[in-house]
Amino acid sequence: MNLLQYQPGESFLHKLNPVTKLLAVFLYCVACIISDSIFVELGLIFLMLIICFFAGLGKRALSLTKNLLILGGMMFILQLLFVRTGTPLLKIGSLCIFTTGGVFSALLLSCRIIATMLPMMLLFAITQMTDLCGAMVKRLHIPYRYAFIVTTAFRFVPLFTSEFHDIEDAQKARGVEYDTKNIFKKIGLVVPLVVPLLMSSLKKVDAGAMSAEVRGFNLRTVRSGYRDYPFAAGDGVCIALTVVLIIISALL
């Protein structure tokens, strides 16, 4: 399943104003970043999962967490090997492999990564790109062309993924050995993948710009959109709650 894909729904999360969602995600991430306690980070992950379950996104959130665990695991190993504070925990001869400080900061960092990434990725599950774009124009008065750039960038991700797979197939069919086990060889084989991808993206961008132009892209203003994105009481409550979260994580 595509991790950035919109998942239609009628939950309280879906109904929030897109701008509120964006701001709430930002504040949630701030809460994750300012906290120095592993327990707070774990609590924030757990809280996000619970919220998702109530919004009918439980499955999605769990599969996301599973994917993020891989990233967290990689960061854990890196931190473990490179942070040298505290007392040595494992020694081979005179060589210290990792220390208490290393374990602590590795755990904290990998939890923090998962805690911050989770709400960001879920933003895509509950927000349609057109809504986000529209709300940014209507409520934040961001010029349409900039809002459009941001949302288009995300819309292109799945397109590029499928293009990438097709190119990989084409190169495999020519005998490029992507099934090689040698990691250095594999890195060298990136060129035949990246060059066609770059070329096709440039062509796509060109064609896209032209078709936007003929559809009057430059004529669009704040009043061109039919839909209005009013704030409701729920939006205020949501922001207030995330601010409370920041205060709690700063105090603990």
Binding site: R174, E177, D179
Partner: peptide, 23 residues
């Protein structure tokens, strides 16, 4: 059989040449 070994025997021309041109 590895795809790279098959590729020596079987050539494949895609509809879109831009997917394979890389030099």
């Amino acid at each position: 059989t590895r795809t790279s070994a098959i590729a020596r025997k079987v050539g494949f021309l895609f509809q879109n040449p831009d997917r394979q041109i890389c030099q």
